[in-house]
Simulated assay, not measured.
Amino acid sequence: MLDLFSGEAPWQEPLAEGAVIIRRRAFDQGEALLDEIARVAQINPFAHRITPGGYRMSVAMTNCGDVGWSSDIRGYQYSEKDSHSHQPWPAMPGLFRQLAQEAAAEAGFPGFNPDACLINRYAPEAKLTLHQDKDERDLQQPIVSVSLGLPAVFQFGGFERGDSTQKVLLEHGDVVVWGGPSRLRYHGILPLKAGVHPLAGAFRYNLTFRRAF
């Protein structure tokens, strides 16, 4: 049972060289982070993007920051405007940026300044297949990923899609940071199990911070 009032301190759980889970790092900020997600989604609603192969993604997404990541039949790309609405992405909330910078520094990547935050919303059975984050120009910059809401099983693999993977449960408030020698490892999320979270309801939300340019 999730204890909304637990004062348990965050701790680090290594995944690989350059990759770590900071357990419960964002737990105490969870409600404020979800409020900011709702504000971003009022400006740029969640949508199911289409992959270059023509498939509808099971995960709904929006973005905030100087640039946003999206997918359509033309491919994967970062842009200053949403290709659907042709409007600029909402500004990145200060709370988001501070969390990403502090978590990156705690994981050994000081000086991280994200310009993009991809926000994914998972409903039951939604998943993210194994993939690499490689559309960014500077692959020396880490990825910071924040889990909110329902728990999910995170897959963290090697440098080829067929490599074996670690499977770890990510819960509300957990933050994963990977970079350096682990920057291009494959990763994904197994289909989300149904449930109800006291703050996020029937969903899992994920904030993925990147330095795209």
Rank of each mutant, 00 (worst) to 15 (best):
A123Q: 15
R23M: 00
E8T: 08
Q132Y: 02
V196S: 11
I189M: 03
A38W: 14
E8C: 03
L130C: 02
L4T: 00
K127P: 01
S70Y: 15
W89S: 07
G30E: 10
S83D: 15
G195A: 07
E171A: 05
V40G: 09
P52F: 14
A152R: 14
T129Y: 10
F46N: 09
E102P: 04
A100H: 09
K167C: 07
E36L: 09
G75Y: 12
G68W: 13
D115C: 06
L118Y: 08
G162P: 01
G179H: 05
E102H: 13
A105K: 11
E80D: 11
R25G: 07
W178Q: 02
G54E: 13
P181L: 08
L34P: 05
W69R: 12
F96G: 07
P181S: 08
G18P: 05
L190R: 02
E106F: 07
G188K: 01
V144D: 07
S79G: 15
I50R: 15
Q42D: 14
L190P: 01
I50D: 10
Y205G: 00
G111A: 14
I119M: 12
Q166F: 05
Y78G: 10
H131Q: 05
D82I: 14
D3L: 00
G173I: 00
G173H: 00
P110G: 10
L170T: 00
P90V: 04
G180I: 03
A9F: 02
H86F: 15
V144G: 08
G111M: 11
D35G: 12
E106G: 06
V20W: 09
G68E: 15
S71P: 14
D133K: 02
P191N: 04
Q166L: 14
P124V: 07
Q29A: 13
E102G: 04
H187F: 03
E36R: 11
Q87I: 11
P124Q: 08
F159A: 03
Y76R: 13
S85F: 14
F156K: 01
G30Q: 10
A103V: 04
A16S: 08
V168L: 08
E136A: 10
R121N: 11
